[in-house]
């Protein structure tokens, strides 16, 4: 394996006042993945992280002279450096792992985007103030609306625009049910931690610890005790050392307060 530079860094938006649910989940998933690979990164928060990223999405990592964004490409990049979590799996297990990762992207990530950009109350109370927070008026409004328009067009194209919040929550429940059944009583989805565990942890932990307008979303996850136990276990194992409270400071106490109105 190639050596991993000491100054490797992961960029995301400001934790307390800016980052949104979906970006926080994606960032946490990448952090968990790198922790599982035992590759340390420094988390750097920048208000313009979204614009610094080569794909326009957070998080991205800066390693040596390379910049890579999002979990999928980062997994590939790290693999090329000689670190992999899924090498021990057989072909059928690899197919299964990829299928479940698509399930999380297809349902949980889309539901998070729906909630933060298509649910009118959430948009007004949480998303616009947070998304526009680094910028002065009227730029804050313009950028928020631009982003909202972009996400809504995407929702329309995939047929989610006509869904009600209830239907979306129902989808989340279905997804959590499937993950819960698949996990069963095992500590991880396969014999040892893989990128699937990192991805599931990133999303579920963020959903569980982020205060939104209502608790409906986190209640869906809380119904599955093995999933909450799974989150707690990974948190303790991979983020326990740094701070007593939680992974990265992006998590519960600070975040809850900042999102409470």
């Amino acid at each position: 394996a190639e050596p991993w530079p000491e100054n490797a860094a992961l960029y995301q938006q400001l934790k307390d006042e800016q980052i949104l649910l979906s970006d926080n989940a994606s960032s946490l998933a990448v952090q968990a993945f790198l922790q599982m690979c035992n590759l340390p990164v420094r988390v750097i928060c920048r208000a313009n992280a979204e614009y610094m990223s080569p794909s326009g999405k957070v998080p991205f990592i800066h390693v040596g002279n390379q910049v890579v964004s999002e979990l999928g490409p980062i997994v590939q990049f790290v693999k090329a450096k000689g670190h992999s979590l899924s090498d021990g799996l057989d072909e059928v297990q690899k197919a299964e792992m990829k299928a479940y990762m698509e399930l999380v992207n297809n349902m949980l990530l889309t539901a998070e985007l729906y909630l933060q950009w298509c649910d009118d109350v959430t948009v007004e109370e949480i998303t616009h103030p947070r998304y526009g927070s680094p910028y002065p008026w009227p730029l804050n409004r313009i950028l928020s609306y631009q982003k909202q328009w972009e996400v809504r067009r995407k929702m329309k194209a995939i047929g989610w625009a006509g869904k009600t919040l209830e239907q979306v929550l129902e989808d989340v429940d279905q997804c959590c049910h499937a993950l819960s059944q698949r996990l069963g009583t095992q500590p991880y989805f396969f014999n040892k931690p893989t990128e699937l565990d990192a991805l599931v942890f990133g999303h579920l932990f963020t959903i569980l610890t982020t205060q939104l307008i209502t608790d409906e979303l986190s209640e869906k996850v809380k119904n599955y005790s093995n999933l909450t136990a799974f989150c707690r276990r990974i948190e303790q194992q991979y983020f326990g050392g740094q701070e007593k409270e939680s992974p990265t400071t992006a998590a519960p106490p600070a975040k809850k307060k900042s999102l409470l109105r």
Partner: peptide, 17 residues
């Protein structure tokens, strides 16, 4: 139950990929 979960996951794979 696990096979039911797998079904959902593979359908997501088909739709995304």
């Amino acid at each position: 139950a696990k096979q039911g979960a797998d079904t959902l996951a593979y359908i997501a794979l088909l739709e995304e990929k």
